[in-house]
Lab assay of single mutants.
Amino acid sequence: SADYSSLTVVQLKDLLTKRNLSVGGLKNELVQRLIKDDEESKGE
């Protein structure tokens, strides 16, 4: 998976916004949300 932890919070929020995901929470939560979304989209 992508190394989201190396991105800035601003970059993470931009990715979340593009996916229509919540941008609330700490950086670690944003990273986990993106990883979870990646895993769910692979399952389709």
Rank of each mutant, 00 (worst) to 15 (best):
E29Q: 08
V9L: 09
S1K: 15
Y4T: 02
L26D: 15
V9G: 04
N20F: 06
D14C: 13
R19S: 02
T8Y: 00
N20I: 04
G43Y: 11
E39M: 14
G43I: 13
L12R: 00
S5D: 15
S22E: 12
K18V: 07
L26N: 15
N20K: 09
Y4W: 01
N28A: 14
K42I: 11
G24T: 15
D14S: 07
V23G: 07
Y4N: 02
Y4V: 02
L7H: 05
V23Y: 05
E44A: 13
N28P: 11
A2R: 12
V10A: 15
K36H: 10
L21Y: 00
D3S: 06
K42T: 10
L30S: 00
N28C: 11
G25F: 01
G24W: 05
N20V: 03
L7I: 04
G43P: 11
L16V: 03
D3E: 08
E40M: 13
S5L: 12
D37M: 05
L15P: 01
D37A: 11
V10R: 10
E29V: 07
A2I: 15
K27R: 10
V10E: 15
V31C: 06
D37V: 04
G25H: 02
D38V: 05
K18I: 09
K42P: 08
K13H: 07
L30H: 01
K36N: 11
T8P: 06
V10G: 13
V31L: 08
A2E: 13
V10N: 14
V23E: 07
R33V: 03
L21E: 02
E39D: 09
A2G: 12
G24E: 15
S41I: 10
Q11V: 07
E39T: 09
A2T: 13
N20A: 07
T8F: 00
K42V: 10
S5R: 08
N28D: 15
S22K: 10
G43V: 12
G43W: 11
R19P: 02
E39K: 10
L16S: 01
L15V: 06
L16P: 01
D37W: 13
E39F: 11
L26H: 13
S1C: 14
D3H: 08
K13L: 09
L16E: 01
L26I: 10
D38N: 04
K42W: 10
R19M: 02
K13N: 07
L15R: 04
G24Y: 06
L30T: 01
T8G: 07
K36C: 08
T17F: 07
D14N: 09
E40Q: 13
D38G: 04
R33N: 02
E40V: 11
Q32D: 12
S1V: 12
G24M: 10
Q32T: 09
Q11M: 08
K36A: 12
G25K: 01
R33I: 04
Q32P: 01
L12T: 00
L12A: 00
S22V: 07
S5I: 09
L16R: 00
S1R: 13
K42D: 09
V23W: 05
S1L: 14
G25T: 02
K13A: 06
L12Y: 00
R19Y: 00
